[in-house]
């Protein structure tokens, strides 16, 4: 091969130029990127949709001049990354936004979190926050969603137990509790409501599992599986707004509510910027944005009620089950047990 291409080789200068430039780029670029680690800016590790996080970050930067970025992942992955950084002693982030509040309670107890009471915290109900450590930025309701082009509203499942009906076999797509903190809470609540057999009964329905509410919503909208379970309402709302054939059902017997809270790691960089971000995210403007633009309900007391569209309704009209702080503590204590059951069916 060498002889064949010998005469058509690039010049030595070209080659050395390329490699030299690349090596110099690496030598100069890498350390700077690494050492820059969020000096004077916000780096949030967060669950949720990329679009909504980007919008809030941009608004924060526009208001304060402080650059903000969010790295998005599933709730479980966020906990993993955060703990890996705690373990390595190299905390790169300075804000955590996540549904795994049970982990936040543990981090607070282990001394990993900054003790900070945002002045905005007083606007949030006491039973859904941990004073000094975390406040719910938003809440997620785990709904049933259905494809309105394939299922008439009257025929859609109305209760959680309806999902076990053989008529829905091979028709359900569900959020995987191995990937999403919201789904972990959902499995905990359903196990309390429907019994320990919940996981195995869902497996018998041959559910398809997806790793985010967005993907569950896509699968319903495309019609691949007409019923979506544990899907958060903002995914229903956003797809429906784009013209997708999807609507939600909020069963009367109650809906599990996942708290999405904000906290600050004690050893993160630039904690002042982090505090300002938390204050801003809990403030009325950002809270209104969450609810109006991204259809995510918030608990703040002075924000207008949630819209009544696509089967969704204001939070006050929804019965919330198994979602208070005491329930979350029980969830933390029994998590290994019910997640082991879940793993048996999730493959």
């Amino acid at each position: 091969m060498a002889a064949q291409i010998w005469s058509e080789n690039p010049g030595r200068r070209t080659f050395l130029g390329w490699t030299g430039a690349a090596a110099a780029g690496l030598a100069l670029g890498l350390p700077r990127r690494t050492l820059a680690a969020a000096a004077g800016k916000v780096l949030q590790y967060a669950g949720g949709s990329a679009e909504s996080l980007t919008a809030l970050d941009e608004l924060f930067t526009a208001k304060t001049g402080i650059p903000a970025e969010s790295w998005r992942a599933g709730g479980v992955a966020v906990v993993q990354k955060v703990e890996a950084e705690f373990q390595a002693g190299r905390v790169l982030h300075n804000v955590i936004g996540n549904t795994e509040v049970e982990a936040m309670i543990r981090w607070a107890e282990q001394g990993h979190l900054l003790n900070y009471d945002s002045p905005e915290a007083a606007h949030f109900p006491r039973e859904f926050r941990m004073p000094g450590y975390w406040v719910p930025q938003k809440v997620l309701l785990n709904t049933i969603a259905y494809n309105t082009g394939m299922i008439k509203p009257a025929e859609a499942p109305k209760h959680w137990a309806d999902l076990m009906d053989p008529v829905w076999k091979d028709k359900i797509v569900m959020l995987d509790a191995r990937a999403s903190g919201s789904a972990v809470h959902f499995v905990f609540a359903m196990r309390k409501l429907l019994g320990k057999e919940f996981a195995t009964r869902m497996a018998k329905q041959n559910v398809m599992l997806k790793r985010s509410g967005g993907d569950v919503a896509n699968t319903v909208v495309a019609g691949e599986r007409p019923i979506g379970v544990a899907i958060q309402e903002y995914y229903v709302y956003s797809r429906a707004k784009k013209g997708g054939p999807i609507a939600a059902v909020l069963p009367d017997e109650g809906v599990p509510m996942t708290i999405y809270a904000l906290c600050i790691p004690k050893n993160g960089p630039d904690l002042e910027a982090a505090k300002r971000y938390v204050d801003f995210a809990l403030g009325k403007e950002a809270q209104t944005l969450w609810q109006e633009k991204f259809a995510t309900p918030v608990l703040r007391d002075d924000v207008p009620p949630y819209p009544r569209e696509f089967g969704l309704r204001p939070l006050k009209e929804v019965k919330i089950i198994f979602s208070a702080i005491e329930d979350l503590k029980e969830e933390g204590a029994t998590k290994r047990e019910f997640m082991d059951e879940w793993k048996q069916v999730s493959g």
Binding site: R33, T34, A37, L43, Y45, S49, A50, E51, W71, R72, A73, G74, K81, A84, E85, L92, H93, A179, K210, R211, S212, G213, G214, D215, V216, A217, N218, Y235
Partner: peptide, 23 residues
């Protein structure tokens, strides 16, 4: 990877996981 070291394949993987088909 950690979030500051996101590379193209990981960004794709994340978009897949979050269900953002168009992106």
């Amino acid at each position: 990877y950690t979030p500051k070291q996101v590379v193209l394949s990981v960004a794709l993987f994340d978009l897949w996981a979050s269900g953002d088909i168009g992106y």
